[in-house]
Amino acid sequence: MDRLLGAMTVASLLLIVLVLASVRREHIRVEYSISWLAAGLALLVLSLWKSLDQRIAIALKIPDLAVTLLTICGVVFLGVLFAFSLRLSQLKDSSIKLAQRVAILEFHVESLAAQRAINNTPARADAASAQGRLRASTDVPLKPGQSVR
């Protein structure tokens, strides 16, 4: 049991050092390091405070202390992973919306620029047309109420 607690102490210290080093190198942003640091600290406390582990084991009615510790570790890491899954999903949604918005705005800007070129100088319009950029504005009308036909 003491060897398991020792290994857990080393593992939690390694986790804390790894996370801090990653934050220092800006591989992980501070706000995303907090969950991992909290998990590492919780495991460190459990590994150093044997009487607390015994109390938890009694409360959970798990006779084996090692199984209790592994269960707690599992729950802590599942919690962290779930939190990150939520965050990843939010970020993916935002990234998709942003990419679509950027593409649509870019499309509108190019269309307006081409329209402006047509209105201002015929020579510039010809040049733009030669690059194939004017097609967008002429093909997709900017006026409302247009249908497929």
């Binding site: 990419a99 679509q100 950027v102 593409a103 093909d139 997709v140 009308p141 900017l142 409302p144 247009q146």
Partner: peptide
Amino acid sequence: SVLPLPHHLGLGGCVQAGYRLAFDLDFD
């Protein structure tokens, strides 16, 4: 006309971008 997406979104994201533009431009 071409709507170039800045990064790969997958089929659904790609189609939705087209639907959004069509909706913005009032297509029926």
